[in-house]
Amino acid sequence: MTATAEAEPQVTRVGDIDFNDAVALLDRHALRLHRVADGAPIPGSYWGEPEAGIIASDVYVRNDTPVHSMLHEACHLIVLPPERRALVHTDATDSVPEEDATCYLQIVLAGQLPGVGSTQLMADMDAWGYTYRLGSTQAWFEQDAEDARAWLVERGLLGA
Rank of each mutant, 00 (worst) to 15 (best):
P41R: 15
P41E: 13
S45E: 03
S45A: 14
W47D: 02
G48L: 04
E49N: 11
E51H: 13
I55A: 10
I55P: 00
I55F: 10
A56K: 09
S57E: 13
V59Q: 01
V59H: 01
R62N: 00
D64E: 13
D64K: 04
T65R: 05
V67K: 06
M70A: 13
E73K: 00
C75G: 01
H76K: 07
L77I: 02
P81V: 15
R84E: 14
R84H: 15
R84K: 15
D91H: 12
D91A: 13
A92M: 11
V96R: 14
E98A: 14
E98N: 05
E98Y: 02
T102D: 06
T102I: 10
Y104N: 04
I107H: 10
V108Q: 05
L109N: 08
L109M: 15
L109P: 03
G111D: 09
Q112E: 12
P114G: 08
P114E: 12
G117F: 15
L121I: 06
M122T: 08
A123D: 08
D126W: 07
W128P: 00
W128A: 14
Y132L: 01
R133V: 01
L134V: 02
T137E: 02
A139L: 12
F141P: 06
F141I: 09
E142Q: 15
A145E: 05
A145L: 08
A145N: 02
L152A: 00
L152E: 00
G156D: 03
L157K: 06
A160L: 11
A160R: 13
